[in-house]
């Protein structure tokens, strides 16, 4: 059926962002020598894609993510998000979720989610409503009044995700968000993240050490090598969605994971 032209849709179309990284290099100067952390990295991420960065420790994947967040500036090259560079953090365009314990322990879950809105002087009632909505999205309806120490590790990460999403940014950057969780919680949170992602249609860039997690979550996996950090492979994950637990033991899954592992073993 054709939609009527004069009816505005109830939900605005999802805001998704395009990310473009061109010839980005990062050099750390130490007293004795210059360390090349990233060497001429280029990549393009289309709106709405779920992209995972993997690589051995020290390959610069987190550094690259911090640059996309505007938390760090590259030595050379350009990074644009929706066509504009990102010289400093811009929560309207980019939400960031960190590894762990980045919730403010003296605030309740909903106050944590409201934090970025409070920084910009959004009125209390509107703040509260948006926080409620974000908490509901991550499955924490009714837990808003709890402090972080009263929440489990998985719940804390849900709050972090809600905080990253509360301003409805087109891009969500996640720096090893589930690294501190136990295996079971990690699997559940992966499924939860995919559900949230498909509900919001954001562009997600996700850094992880886990190859299984990478293949399970991603549309595309970008493999990086260390010293200097550069991209050694950029592969598509053709597995259908929704992803299921059974896929983990399938041939297609194993082949992809092996291919990534070979790259990492070579560079480590």
């Amino acid at each position: 059926m054709q939609p009527l032209a004069n009816v505005t849709p109830l939900k605005p179309p999802p805001r998704a962002g395009a990310i473009e990284v061109k010839n980005v290099g990062q050099i750390f100067k130490t007293s004795t020598q210059d360390v090349v952390a990233l060497d001429s990295v280029s990549l393009e991420i289309k709106p709405g894609r779920f992209v995972v960065l993997v690589g051995p420790s020290g390959c610069g994947k987190s550094t690259l993510l911090m640059m996309m967040a505007g938390l760090r500036q590259q030595t050379t090259g350009t990074i644009t998000i929706n066509g504009a560079p990102i010289p400093k953090p811009d929560p309207d365009r980019v939400g960031v979720v960190f590894q762990e314990a980045s919730l403010f322990p003296w605030l309740t879950a909903e106050e944590n989610v409201e934090f970025p809105l409070a920084l910009r002087g959004v009125a209390k009632a509107e703040r509260r409503a948006k926080a409620q909505e974000a908490l509901k999205l991550v499955g924490l309806d009714g837990f808003g009044k709890r402090h972080p120490h009263e929440l489990s590790g998985g719940m804390k990460q849900r709050v972090s995700i809600a905080r990253g999403l509360v301003q409805d940014p087109p891009v969500l950057l996640m720096d090893e968000p589930f690294a501190a969780l136990d295996e079971q919680t990690r699997m559940t949170m992966g499924d939860e993240l995919l559900r949230i992602w498909s509900a919001t249609g954001k562009t997600v860039v996700f850094v992880t050490h886990s190859l299984t997690e990478a293949v399970y979550l991603a549309d595309e996996v970008i493999v990086m090598s260390a010293r200097p950090g550069r991209i050694v492979d950029h592969l598509q994950v053709p597995l259908p969605r929704p992803r299921t637990y059974e896929m983990l033991s399938g041939d297609a899954f194993g082949t992809l994971r092996d291919r990534i592992w070979r790259h990492i073993r070579k560079s480590a």
Binding site: A69, L71, K88, P89, D90, P91, V94, V96, F98, Q99, A101, S102, F104, W106, F115, P116, A118, L119, R120, R163
Partner: peptide
């Protein structure tokens, strides 16, 4: 430092970081 980094990522200015993060922490 993770808390301060998180506040920065949400666009907190220097004085907002002091009042809303450093002092309560």
């Amino acid at each position: 430092p993770q808390l301060i980094l998180a506040a920065r990522s949400m666009g907190a200015t220097m004085s907002q970081r002091l009042v809303r993060v450093i002092i309560p922490a």
